[in-house]
Computed example of a mutant assay.
Amino acid sequence: MRKILNTAHIYMIIGLVSGLYYRELTKAEDFDGTTQLAVVHTHVLALGMLFFLVVLALEKQFTLTDHRLFGWFFWIYNAGLAVTVAMMTLHGTLTVLGHDGGAAVAGIAGLGHVLLTVGLVLLFVTLGKCLPAASRKA
């Protein structure tokens, strides 16, 4: 349970720092257009911090970490979120600096989204296997 809480805490810090980075970079570059940096803050807080707080509550209720798929979910989801957020930050930074992100950035971001999807599927499979047998019949 501590690992899940620490993960949520780390995402809270990253989310807050990313908001500060967005504000300071756009101010320093006198940028007033649209950039993906504007949504990195909310993505990290929602898909990172809040998501893992929900997983923490599910762990308390269903002991998800006892299932062998939980570790796979945890690392694949985190890898997907890290790749996605890194590419959003890179693309947004390049936009603010007046450069094009290119197809490679979009492709790698797509890979991050695929990893997030696989992670979510693994979470739901794990949750389904951890539910008490009586509640599966309903």
Rank of each mutant, 00 (worst) to 15 (best):
L81P: 00
T35N: 08
M1W: 06
F62Y: 15
L37P: 01
M1A: 14
C130H: 05
T65W: 02
T65Q: 04
G33Q: 13
L115H: 01
A82H: 03
F124Y: 12
I4H: 02
Q36K: 12
M87S: 04
K3Y: 09
G19I: 09
V55M: 06
T84H: 04
A38F: 10
A104Q: 09
F73Y: 15
I13L: 15
A134C: 05
D30S: 15
T93Y: 11
K27I: 07
T26K: 05
V54H: 04
L69C: 05
L37G: 03
I4W: 05
M88P: 03
V44Q: 01
F124E: 06
G92H: 07
G33V: 09
L37M: 14
P132G: 13
L97Y: 12
A8T: 02
F70A: 01
L16C: 12
L53T: 02
F51S: 10
A38Y: 12
A28S: 14
D66E: 15
L127N: 01
A46W: 13
V96L: 08
A8F: 11
V40A: 04
S18N: 05
K129L: 15
K129P: 02
R68G: 07
G33I: 10
L116E: 13
V44Y: 00
N6E: 12
A138I: 13
G19P: 07
S135Q: 14
G92D: 05
W72G: 06
Y11W: 15
L50T: 06
A28Q: 11
